[in-house]
Structure formats: C-alpha cells, structure tokens
Design a protein around this nucleic acid. Structure first.
Lengths: 106, 106
DNA sequence: GCGTATTTCTTCTGTTTACCAGAAATAATC
DNA sequence: GATTATTTCTGGTAAACAGAAGAAATACGC
C-alpha cells in the first residue's frame, strides 16, 4: 500500500467531512475554503479518479437535480480501504513525532 | 505560504526527530524504516534543496568524520518557518476532521 | 412549446513541477 | 591506489496546475 500524496489525503478527508454532499465541485470548493489556496479542476478530478481506481473511494452518479443547470453529480464515498490509507498516514506522522517535544511543531 | 507536499512534510518531521544527526543519508534511511517504503536519493535530496531555498531548513556542512570514507555531511535543522509550515498542515487536517466521527478514520 | 440562453458539473489539452531509480562523481580514510 | 560514506547528476515517469471546452440539465422569450 503506497503512501497517499498530499492532495489525495486532503480529498479523502474532505469527502468524509462532506458526507452525502461530496462531489467534485463541493470537494474543490471545500478544499479551497479550508486551505485558503487555489485548486484547479484537474487537481481534484484527476486524484479522485486515481482514488477510485485504487478502491479508496466509490463513485456513484446521482440523478439530475431540480435546479437550473442541475446536471448529474458524481458522488463519492470513502471505503474502508480509504480509511485504512488515512490511518497509515497518521501512523507514519505519529511515529515521526515520537520523542520530539511538542513545542517543536509550533 | 504554499502547503507542504507529502515528502516535504515527512522530511521536516524526520529532521526534527533526528536532531543533531540529520543529514541526507540518515534522513533517507529513517524515512524508509518508518514508512516501510523505498525512497530514492533524489526523492530526499531534491526536496531538501527546495526546503532550504524556502527557508524551512538550514543546511550546514560538517567536518569530515574520522571513519573510513568519512566524507563531509550536510546537516539540516528545521527553522521557525519550517515549524510554522508543519503547523499549518496540522491546522488544515484538523479543520477537515471537525465533526467527523473518529471511527471514520480507522 | 420550440429554440436558445443560462447554469452546473465534468472532461480535456497543454504546461510545469515533483517524484522516482540508480549510476556517477566527490571526498574522505586505509 | 583501493575502499567507503556521502552527495550530485541524468533520464524517465507521474502528479499537479491553469483554465478552456464540453455535456447535460433548467429557464426564458415569443
């Protein structure tokens, strides 16, 4: 199991937090709001495809919405494999903090 | 301040943990031991250069060691800027976990 | 109610940057 | 000169970035 990249990890976290409302546009907006940085469309959709291929998320197309312009949305959910990948990243960071005074991190 | 990439963050943490003994070879070995994954030389030295340019670490050449083959080592230390960058990553992840049941992370 | 404008969401194209693998170079001791 | 520890280099693959284009739905004018 190869380590998650930064963007992959942030996307997984965003999908968890957005719950029922996790699709490309909301994921991207959420990441921009929380990080304060710009994310291009490709920087979200491409990692989402990769996460889907690896089985870290599942993608299901929803029905068209009632709103104007309400095109289908592709909703994402984190799988147990995705959760495990997040946990592995936590384990690594935790191991790298062992014995380092907390002050050193800010 | 642009977000740290995965490798940059892991390297900063490794440098903190290694303390006085943080140079290319030990950083690389440490990361491989803790992650269980392979890191090429370039995957360590290139990010180290980048972190140096950005002022997240300082690099100082040590004296030759007494051992056979004891070439100079380039020692690294994390700067306050580097600590702040680590803290920013923590803030982002923490914000993305707000309201998500801990169980969901593994 | 037909055609067209508008809106939402996703996909695509081209470019830049990061990462990867390992050989080669460097600089020290024996 | 042989050997060893460390760093640098070379070439290739993959990820991230920026934003335009495309697709699929509703709304509006007449």
């Amino acid at each position: 199991m190869t380590l998650l990249r930064r963007t992959e990890e942030l996307i997984l976290l965003a999908v968890l937090q957005l719950g029922e409302n996790a699709y490309g546009v909301t994921i991207r907006r959420h990441l921009m709001e929380i990080t304060g940085e710009h994310f291009s469309f490709a920087s979200v959709y491409v990692p989402l495809d990769r996460l889907t291929e690896r089985g870290y998320v599942t993608a299901t197309d929803g029905p068209p919405t009632k709103e104007r312009g309400g095109r289908r949305r592709r909703f994402y959910r984190v799988t147990p494999g995705g959760v495990a990948a997040l946990a592995e990243m936590e384990r690594v960071r935790s191991a790298l903090r062992q014995g380092v005074p907390k002050l050193a991190f800010g």
